[in-house]
Design a protein around this nucleic acid. Structure first.
Length: 684
DNA sequence: GTCATTCAGAGGTAT
DNA sequence: ACCTCTGAATGACTT
């Protein structure tokens, strides 16, 4: 089930876009308390509110301060030079600041709760934001790399090979030995963590013994580099992460001591029995080729660190690496909890060389390991229609989409399928709305790949908004994305048509107990990948006002976002949007409220089943391709995170609290069941 | 399509 | 100046 979407707010890179209910409501909203939701939604809107009512509430001000600091820690990392202690102290002072308002009156109670939640969740959210930042850098660097490849491709010999999808550029830059500049940059993941280190954006740059706040047992990483970004395991290559002598001053242990290990199952002598692990030490093996042992291991570095753990009873975080062929990322790393290093010995391994062995036993009192974690399989993703439990409809699209979308219901008795709507893959336009088709288009041939000449890329700030990796991923949320359209010279395979290529993942509509219908994917979805468009009937908002009970209206607020109106957070930098686009809308009254909306009440696609969540994994992105009218932009949903199979897909409907009025003119409330740690508890 | 091989990668640790 | 249980591209192979 879906409700009216309103203003969006974005948390860092989880974007937001679109419609505001109406400005009178917004005024009401303004009067509402400097809402407890402020922390969660980094939200422009709330910030605007706070600015607007600076005069309010002392305690709130304090809280805000604390939050700001908190945010600083997350976003800018510790920009202070290292010195751990300072950091710790600072964090404590933040805590103090946060706790202060606890003892206050009613309104402040809200704040208190909110603050309490911030604390709980902020660890989780810090991790999430850190990973999102990593993903953003990663995609930016992939983009840079793709650009570089184009350059080297066109330079050497203008290989205008008719090969279609491969503008991949054979990276044999041998032709130009002096490299077309400084950085070969082959590993965007490593570059991304380098960048985060430079900027002090590593979440826990100080190594820690034991568990890491915000990372529960079962947490999944999608690359070694992600772990480095969080500070969970600080080498991207080594299996054993340990604290060296430099920590001797701050602790009374004998160093080095190991703090985290990755089990990749690659050592020929490793044994893994879930709760009980025999881990082979590092060193002495052939780095290339068969990776066999070629010499004796020594009791040094990581091996010594693990030995010291035995004697000093230091627990070690254990991460298991898994191949997951079904995913684009190809690898998954699960955090499986703390283990104690029970003992160690030295033996002659299969290859005849000395190896060290460490027996690890899982500490008690942790969530049980499932076989899914040890022998990694993603839940039970059905392989065929016959395997689907609770199937109530084989394909709700009736064959319209390339990939069928089944519906399942294991909640109702008897199970019922979703009804009351007509599936429609593409947008329909109401009679009184005219969709222009004035986009000029670019003159590229075949595929667009040179952002310096493609007219469409130029509109996006001289870059393609997408990288071609994984079939097209949006590098970051923008106010609006300009895609290639019907008048462009490029073909359908062009990366700048990424949102026009239909569904890419096997989606399922499933029944939930409290939230009605919901949507999930059987496939892994990498961050920045397009998930689906929001379709329905494109209509005038004013015609909708009578239909208060219609919960499927999506207001198109591309224009409002671009202007930063209604508290929306700008996503693009000033000057990035071509002026000819902006200058069209001169009537300020037309700007305050989205003029157009998409009504998916009676007709729509899969998007109408996607639920709201206060901590979503999708974001909304306005896209223009056939015309350049921001008020009529297409609405796309993109993945904000790497999304594992079977995780419910959600986005932030973006309601401001108390912004929705019932037919009686009273404020309507709707509880939120999203279950996020920082849930606002109300949808509106 | 899958497998095997290749190799750059870049910070941490110790010398 | 070492070390390193990645990742991705390439080439060889199998169906």
């Amino acid at each position: 089930m879906v409700f009216t979407r309103t203003e969006k707010s974005a948390t860092s890179n989880s974007p937001v876009t679109n419609g505001v209910k109406e400005d009178k409501d917004f005024k009401k909203l303004k009067q509402s308390k400097a809402s407890p939701t402020a922390p969660r939604r980094s939200s422009a809107r709330i910030q605007a509110l706070q600015k607007a009512e600076k005069t309010v509430a002392g305690p709130n001000a304090v809280v805000v301060k604390g939050e700001d600091k908190c945010k600083d820690n997350v976003k800018e990392g510790k920009s202070k030079k290292r010195s751990r202690k300072n950091l710790v102290v600072e964090e404590q002072s933040v805590l103090l600041l946060k706790k202060k308002p606890l003892a206050c009156g009613k309104d402040e109670m809200k704040v208190e709760n909110a603050v309490g939640q911030i604390e709980d969740k902020s660890d989780t959210v810090k991790v999430k934001d850190t990973i999102r930042l990593f993903n953003k850098y990663y995609l930016q660097l992939v983009q840079e790399e793709e650009k570089r490849c184009v350059r080297t491709e066109t330079q050497p010999k203008d290989a205008n090979s008719p090969k279609k999808s491969s503008q991949k550029a054979p990276k044999s830059k041998k032709g130009a030995p002096h490299v077309d500049s400084k950085k070969p940059a082959k590993r965007p993941d490593l570059k991304a963590i380098s960048k985060m280190m430079e900027n002090n954006e590593i979440l826990y740059s100080e190594k820690r013994i034991g568990s890491i706040p915000g990372i529960e047992v079962g947490y999944q990483f999608y690359s070694r580099a992600e772990m480095v970004a969080v500070g969970f395991h600080s080498h991207w290559l080594n299996g054993i992460d340990y604290m060296g002598q430099s920590y001797a001053k701050a602790y009374s242990f004998e160093f080095p001591i190991a703090i985290a290990i990755v089990l990749s199952g690659m050592y020929e002598d490793d044994q893994d029995n879930a709760e009980d692990v025999v881990y082979t030490g590092q060193g002495g093996h052939n780095l290339t080729g068969d990776k066999r042992q070629i010499q004796d291991q020594k009791l040094e570095r990581g091996n010594l660190a693990l030995k010291n753990c035995v004697e000093q009873c230091v627990p070690v975080r254990v991460i298991r690496g898994h191949d997951s062929s079904s995913s684009y990322s190809g690898k998954v790393y699960t955090y499986d909890g703390l283990y104690k290093v029970v003992n160690y010995w030295c033996e002659t391994g299969l290859s005849g060389f000395k190896v060290f062995k460490f027996r690890l036993r899982r500490l008690e009192g942790q969530p049980t390991l499932t076989t899914n974690q040890v022998y990694f399989t993603y839940g039970r993703v059905p392989q065929s229609i016959a395997e689907i439990r609770g199937l109530v409809c084989e394909d709700i699209t009736g064959g319209q989409e390339d990939i069928p979308i089944p519906a399942t219901n294991v909640v109702d008795d008897p199970p019922v399928p979703p009804t009351g709507f007509t599936y429609c893959k593409s947008l329909k336009v109401a009679k009184n709305v005219k969709l222009p088709s004035n986009a000029a288009g670019c003159k590229c041939k075949g595929l667009c790949n040179d952002p310096t000449t493609c007219a469409c890329a130029l509109r996006n700030g001289s870059d393609f908004p997408y990288v071609s990796r994984n079939g097209g991923r949006l590098v970051e949320a923008k106010d609006v994305v300009f895609e290639c359209g019907p008048k462009c010279g490029c073909g359908p395979g062009c990366v700048n048509r990424t949102s026009q290529k239909g569904l890419r993942y096997r989606l399922e509509v499933f029944r939930t107990a409290k939230k009605g219908w919901a949507v999930r994917s059987w496939d892994f979805i990498p961050s920045g990948a397009p998930v689906c468009e929001y379709t329905g009937i494109l209509a005038r908002t004013e015609d909708m006002d009578s239909m208060l009970e219609n919960n499927y209206i999506f207001e198109i607020d591309g224009l409002q976002t671009i202007k930063g109106l209604g508290g929306r957070e700008r996503r693009s930098q000033d000057g990035e949007i071509p002026e000819d686009i902006l200058n069209k809308y001169e009537d300020p009254s037309s700007e305050s409220v989205p003029e157009f909306c998409i009504d998916a009440g009676s007709t729509g696609n899969i998007a109408r089943f996607i639920n709201h969540c206060c901590e979503p994994n999708l974001f909304v992105q306005c896209v223009l391709s056939t015309h350049d009218d921001l008020r009529l932009a297409r609405v796309m949903l993109f993945a904000a995170d790497n999304i594992p199979p079977l995780q419910e897909l959600t986005y932030d409907y973006g309601y401001a609290l108390d912004s929705v009025l019932g037919s009686d003119g009273k404020i309507k409330q709707m509880p939120c069941y999203c279950g996020a740690a920082d849930c606002r508890k109300r949808l509106f």
